[in-house]
Amino acid sequence: MPETDAEPEFTSDPESWEYSLYIPNDLRAVTVSRRTLRLILTMHGLIGLVDVAELLATELVSNAVRHTKGPAALRVRWSAGVLRIGAWDADPRPPEPPQELGQLIESDDGGRGLGMVRACSDLWGWQPLSRFGNRGKFVWCELRAAA
């Protein structure tokens, strides 16, 4: 099984928190990421976000592992009632544009990941990013907690 490292990153806001899970380029890392995310959200009392968050993290991490050759990372941040889930990978090229919802349902092909992310999250995006001297990108999405 691939080695992983989940570590909390503390912020100045006592209600905010952030975790990063560094993963190898291994499809088993998708399951490790999903289960780690479930544990993090459960321990922070955010069980109502778990199902959608797991779906989103699975799509983001799966894209990072399947479409790149280097390491990746899952980052989860909670701040001001917003959960941000993101995946870093070593490929600096922009992600493929997401499909429309109608195309997601009708398509038997791959490439549905970011369309699912767009359809199930409140906001999503990507940005170029460097990590440990490697260039890459960070693809993220946000879920707002129900009031």
Score class of each variant (00 low, 15 high):
R38H: 11
R131P: 00
A147W: 11
V30N: 02
R84E: 15
S107K: 04
L83V: 07
Y22A: 14
L123K: 06
V30E: 08
T31H: 08
Y19P: 05
S79R: 13
L37K: 15
T36Q: 11
R144T: 12
R144P: 00
S62M: 06
R135P: 09
P98N: 09
P128R: 11
S16H: 11
A72H: 11
I85K: 09
R38G: 06
A119N: 05
V50D: 09
A29G: 15
A145W: 12
A72W: 01
L123A: 13
G110Y: 04
F10S: 08
H67M: 10
I40F: 07
R93V: 06
G48E: 15
A64I: 04
H67T: 05
K137F: 00
M116G: 08
G111A: 13
P14A: 09
A145P: 05
D91H: 07
S12T: 02
T36Y: 10
E106M: 13
E7M: 03
E18H: 09
F10A: 08
D108Q: 12
I85Y: 01
A80E: 15
L55W: 02
A73R: 13
S20Y: 02
R144Y: 10
T42G: 10
L129S: 03
E100C: 09
N25Y: 00
W140G: 05
R131D: 02
G133K: 07
V50T: 14
G110V: 11
E59H: 05
L143R: 01
A119C: 00
D122F: 05
E96C: 00
M116I: 15
P14H: 09
P71H: 06
G81D: 11
T11N: 04
P24K: 04
P98H: 15
R77S: 13
L101Y: 05
G113M: 02
E142W: 07
Q99F: 01
H44W: 08
G115P: 10
W126T: 09
L55A: 11
R77K: 15
A53P: 06
D26Y: 07
M1Y: 07
D51F: 09
W124I: 08
E3A: 13
P24N: 08
P14K: 09
R28W: 07
V50P: 05
A90F: 01
K137S: 04
D122A: 03
L83D: 14
S62Q: 08
